[in-house]
């Protein structure tokens, strides 16, 4: 059923893409409909990869600008969503490189900071639509060091493959898998009930 809804979603994307390509110069209505479908997700990704709240909207906007001017090159070999996420990942990683003032991306292996107040109580309503819960999940993600947070976002938010993540970050496949595994463990640790937390 999930596959059917994904296929339906991708069909709608394909239709909108066709409209975008056929639109007259200056007519962005079809592109704006496409943007509407992904803008909140792209913004969330930009926030969590860069942890730069001040610039995350600018970054997200630039992702869409890049996508617009590259749209004729999109051949449809992957889904539009996947293609857009790759643009976003590269744009955010470039931003991080510039911000660090280096040519290569260096994500420091800081020790994770575990805050008790981040833990979601078992009795709390785990509804993703509540702002408080979303805020807590955001704080958990932001508390992870970049070495774990970035691969986790790329894998479990962007659904990129391990190979793609390894290539984007310039690390080996084993290192990628290990970091994602550790990141998931840390995320679960911070998400667990207070009484069940294990000291690392």
């Amino acid at each position: 059923m999930a596959e059917e809804s994904n296929a339906g979603f991708e069909d709608q994307d394909a239709e909108l893409l066709r409209d975008v390509r056929e639109a007259r110069e200056g007519d962005l209505r079809a592109f704006e409909l496409l943007m509407e479908r992904y803008q909140r997700r792209i913004l969330a990704d930009c926030r969590y990869i860069t942890r730069d709240e001040n610039n995350s909207e600018d970054l997200a906007q630039e992702v869409f600008v890049k996508a617009f001017f590259s749209i004729r090159k999109f051949e449809g070999r992957s889904s539009f969503r996947h293609w857009l996420q790759r643009i976003k990942v590269h744009h955010c990683l470039n931003h991080l490189k510039k911000a660090s003032g280096k040519n290569e991306l260096s994500i420091d292996d800081e020790a994770p900071v575990i805050h008790e107040h981040l833990q979601v109580p078992a009795a709390a309503e785990r509804n993703m639509e509540t702002a408080a819960h979303r805020q807590q999940v955001s704080e958990i993600l932001n508390s992870l060091p970049a070495t774990l947070r970035i691969p986790l976002v790329m894998c479990d938010m962007d659904e990129l493959s391990y190979d793609e993540i390894a290539a984007s970050l310039g690390i080996g496949l084993s290192a990628t898998k290990m970091r994602i595994k550790r990141a998931r463990e840390q995320f679960r640790l911070l998400y667990q009930e207070p009484g069940m937390r294990h000291e690392s």
Binding site: E36, E57, S138, D156, R188
Partner: peptide, 18 residues
């Protein structure tokens, strides 16, 4: 769970975004 939550994570854009 709870990793699956990350798939649905979104952030509201400003009104002037588009």
């Amino acid at each position: 769970e709870p990793i699956e939550i990350l798939k649905e994570l979104e952030w509201e854009t400003s009104e002037r975004f588009q």
